[in-house]
Amino acid sequence: MTLRIGFLGYGFMGRAHANALARLPMFFPDAPETERRVLIGRDESALETAADRLGFAETATGWREAIDDVDVLFNLAPNFLHAEPSITALERDVHVLCEKPLADEFDDADRMAATAAESDATAAIAFNYRFLPAVARAKRLVERGALGEIRAFRGQYLQDWLLDPDAPWSWRLDADLAGSGALGDLGAHTLDLARYLVGDVERVSGHTRTFVEERPDPEGDGTSAVTVDDAYSAQLAFENGAMGSVEASRVAPGRKNDHRLELDGTEGALRWSLERPNELLVRRADARGFERELVTEAEDPYVEHWWPPGHVLGWEHAIVNQDSEFLRAVATDGAYDPDFEAGLAVQRLLDAIQRADRDGRWVEI
């Protein structure tokens, strides 16, 4: 069976997922066959160029009609367009992989998860960092008890692309289109890994800040208001008693895409950074300090599909690994994690952090 694929959106993540689909037959020969059937967007001229580059057979400027021509929809659109196309697809039993965060607001995410629960189709959210070998190995270490009882999680996601106050305005800076700024754009990933590695969160605090309140209009006509956060920080209280601290910023000098996490347990600890994605720093019970582990052995998660030991993997390989798992679940009617329920759980945290900031108090989840 060949799965007919539709993409809603063709920017950064469109290129990432098109690359993943092209790589699957080479490195995951057991993955189902795919046909890049239709690319959906608004600008006909740009759409034709993108379809040629990304390998799509057709284009469409309306998503409602295009959904009927595909088996799988990759919803790669801005956050405010996540809900309706995904819900419509799932109601028609079209499988969906939706980029994060699940929606621009909690109510939409709640509707999406409810529809997914009623649909026979697979509904996946793209928390791609779970599929990096080092992060997946960290999960195995936690599950095996190598760190003992987890006591603390620390997560950061730092970038600097908005450091310059003259950086142009985009949809990511509009609360009506994005929902939030660094919180949803970057924090969603960190909060998912917090749940993935430690467990459910019981309550949160929150602090958000916008440092630059207006930015140049990209069309060169004055300025547009920034209505989302440039940075956030929060404290987490996990249901199992662990503590957590998380933060993200898009105005952190010198940080291009620095996603990092740390876990402290009763028997050990670990550290990981996306700037060194193939490495884990692990402190075991019988060691004085952290030891470096290069996660490139064939027995490490996903590595058997790629290169010989010691040959590192990059950011894009997580997308390939993720899409292989998703499409295999689609083809076999199998379970997929993270699904829309996982996306809703993170959306609940995003919403709670915003309310905690607004009200100046801890918020129960």
Rank of each mutant, 00 (worst) to 15 (best):
A83H: 05
L54P: 10
L73S: 10
T88D: 06
F74E: 11
G55E: 07
A109E: 02
V96M: 13
V96K: 09
E99R: 01
R53D: 15
V96P: 13
A117C: 08
D71I: 02
D108S: 07
L81T: 05
F80G: 01
D104T: 00
A116G: 15
I67A: 00
L102K: 10
E84W: 08
F80K: 06
A113R: 11
P101C: 06
I87E: 15
M112Y: 02
F80Y: 14
A113N: 13
D52V: 12
P85E: 12
D110L: 12
T115C: 08
L54H: 08
D107N: 08
L90V: 09
L73D: 07
E99F: 02
D71N: 06
G55P: 06
A109H: 04
P85V: 09
K100S: 13
H82M: 04
A57P: 06
E91T: 11
I67C: 00
A89M: 10
E84D: 15
P85I: 10
N79F: 10
E91V: 05
L102Q: 11
L90C: 12
F56K: 05
L73G: 10
L54F: 13
L90P: 08
T115R: 07
E91I: 06
A114Q: 13
R53E: 15
L73N: 07
R111K: 15
